[in-house]
Simulated scan of single mutants.
Amino acid sequence: MKYLPHLFILTLFLGCSKDSADRNPFLQETNFRFDLNLNLPLYNGLNTIGNPVYVGNNGVGLRGVFVMKTSIDVFFAFEASCPNHAPNSCSTMSLNGQNVTCSCEDFEYSLFTGQLLNRPDDGERYFDLLFYRAVQSGNTVTISN
């Protein structure tokens, strides 16, 4: 019984520790919040499933955000900077249908899953797209981190 407080403290420390192995060392996560009005022509394409939109406003993500409606009421938002190297002159990805491509090394990522589609088989660790929250309320989709 006298070891119960020590066991509790040990459990608390272990439960609160964060594994840095899951963090992407190339992309600094920034806090932001941005509302997309689906009635505006700029974001009206998000009313259709599988039609991605690039949001490049200042302060939205690091290099902007790709947003796509993936089902009736689900939206996904991903960082526009390639997750497999530090942001540089070629790291802002471009839309290629429902995928995005990084021109630095031609990595291609799915906007339905965020996964790297042409992952090299060289034993190195590669990261998928950095995911942001996207929540719909009426005709507004709020993306945030």
Rank of each mutant, 00 (worst) to 15 (best):
F8R: 12
E124D: 13
D73T: 13
L130G: 03
F76H: 12
F13C: 11
L111T: 05
M1K: 08
N24D: 10
T48E: 02
C82Y: 05
L10V: 15
T142L: 00
S137Q: 13
T30C: 08
R125S: 03
P25I: 04
Q115V: 08
V74M: 12
L116A: 02
C16I: 10
I72R: 09
L116Y: 03
P83H: 07
K18E: 13
S20W: 11
K18M: 09
N118H: 08
V74Q: 12
D106E: 11
Y132A: 05
F66V: 02
L27V: 11
T113W: 07
G56K: 11
F131D: 04
T70L: 02
S89A: 08
N88K: 06
N51S: 14
D73C: 09
C90P: 01
D121V: 03
Y132R: 08
P25V: 02
E124W: 10
T92F: 04
R33K: 14
S110L: 01
S20L: 15
A80I: 12
L14C: 13
G97R: 07
M68H: 05
I72L: 11
L10N: 09
N24M: 09
Y109M: 06
K2C: 05
F127I: 04
P87R: 01
Y54I: 04
Q115L: 12
I49H: 12
L46F: 05
N118M: 03
D128L: 00
D122T: 07
R23V: 11
A77W: 02
F34R: 09
L38E: 02
T92A: 10
C102K: 01
V60Q: 00
L46W: 05
P41S: 03
D128F: 01
D19N: 15
C16P: 01
N37L: 09
A77V: 11
